[in-house]
Simulated assay, not measured.
Amino acid sequence: MRSAAHIDAPRTAPGQMTDAQFATISAVAHSEYGLNLEESKKSLILSRLSKRLTILGLDDFGAYCRLIESGDPTERDHFVNAITTNVTHFFREPHHFDHLAGEALPRLVGEARAGKRVRLWSAGCSTGQEAYSIAATVTSILPDAGRHDLRILATDIDTNVLATAETGRYDDEVVRALDTEKRRRLFSQDGGPGHGIRRDLKNLVTFRQLNINKPWPMTGRFDVIFFRNVAIYFDREVQERLWSRFADVLRPGGFLYIGHSERVSGPAAASLKSCAVTTYSRI
């Protein structure tokens, strides 16, 4: 059913978006992906989605609103790819990787060597730098991690960034800020274009598309979850629901790492205890 936001709305000129059309786009973004598109983001969203109108040969945003409300799965992917923001780099917020190496991994490495299952999750992995930084941190302590039942799941809603992540190749601009030691830990000398992630790190990571606000297909609990600088795009109700869901799939004693401007709130605060800067442990 078409929403009242654009029924019988007059056609807009190319490059224009009415308030009603923005309301429709915001409603789909929130209901399907949990995203909170504030009015201040209208010009940004207009700019990003105008490219889709050109590609699809649509005359105005009214036609585009009807398309995304129809639930077309291909366009829904393009839609969310366009409206989401991806900012990441290797070893971003280094205190988390220091904590991972010093507090989380010593126990987990012992469990892995004893034959136990160890799982880490990069939720909102973008173009893969976070997941590969986790893998490099793991192998700095457990060089033969690939011989054990230790794996890293990396998920994101954006199919474009996942495609980049799976290649494991990055240009000079991406790696310029890394020191020699970090480059050695991350990249191979395979002679390919750009900088290629080491094969042993790639083998530890599995990339999958996931809408974090829909049912999660994973079974079993995680020992470590990175969910950083993603919750800021959701309203408080969605955030609190996600914190509870993360708590439910995190093993007791496991760690949740979140963004520098984010805080766990709501019911999950009873089971996720702050133990370091933007770091929580599962009680």
Rank of each mutant, 00 (worst) to 15 (best):
M1T: 10
S3C: 07
A5Q: 12
A9L: 14
A9H: 13
P10Q: 08
T12E: 13
G15I: 13
G15P: 00
Q16N: 10
Q16D: 11
M17S: 04
M17R: 04
T18L: 12
A20L: 10
A23D: 13
A29H: 03
A29F: 04
S31D: 15
G34A: 10
N36C: 14
N36G: 03
E38L: 12
K41W: 14
K42W: 08
K42Y: 09
L44A: 09
L46M: 09
L46A: 09
R48G: 01
L49T: 11
S50N: 15
S50K: 13
I55R: 15
L56T: 08
D59F: 05
D59C: 09
D60T: 12
F61N: 04
Y64C: 04
C65N: 08
C65Y: 13
R66P: 00
R66H: 12
R66V: 11
L67S: 07
L67Y: 08
E69H: 10
S70P: 11
P73E: 05
E75M: 06
H78F: 11
F79T: 04
F79E: 00
N81I: 05
N86L: 08
F90I: 05
R92G: 01
R92K: 04
E93M: 06
H95A: 09
H95N: 02
H95K: 06
D98H: 14
H99D: 08
L100Y: 11
L100R: 07
L100T: 07
A101Q: 10
E103Y: 12
E103A: 14
L105R: 05
P106K: 08
P106N: 02
R107Y: 02
R107M: 07
R113H: 04
R113N: 01
A114H: 01
L120N: 00
A123M: 05
S126H: 00
A135D: 03
A135S: 01
A136C: 02
D144K: 04
A145Q: 05
G146Y: 04
R147N: 09
I157H: 00
I157S: 02
D158F: 08
D158E: 05
L162T: 07
L162Y: 04
A163E: 07
A163R: 11
T167G: 05
G168D: 02
V174H: 03
T180F: 05
T180W: 00
E181C: 03
R185I: 05
L186C: 05
G191P: 01
G194D: 07
G196V: 09
G196P: 02
I197A: 04
I197N: 02
R199T: 15
N203Q: 15
N203D: 15
L204F: 13
V205H: 03
F207H: 06
R208V: 15
Q209E: 05
N211H: 02
N211S: 06
K214R: 15
P217S: 07
M218E: 15
T219R: 14
V224N: 04
V230A: 00
Y233T: 06
Y233P: 03
F234T: 01
D235F: 00
R236Y: 06
E237T: 15
Q239W: 02
E240Q: 15
W243F: 14
R245D: 02
R245C: 06
F246V: 13
D248R: 13
V249N: 02
P252T: 11
L256A: 08
I258S: 00
I258L: 09
H260N: 11
R263D: 01
R263F: 09
V264H: 03
A270I: 08
L272Q: 07
K273N: 10
S274L: 15
A276S: 14
T278V: 11
T279V: 14
Y280I: 12
I283T: 13
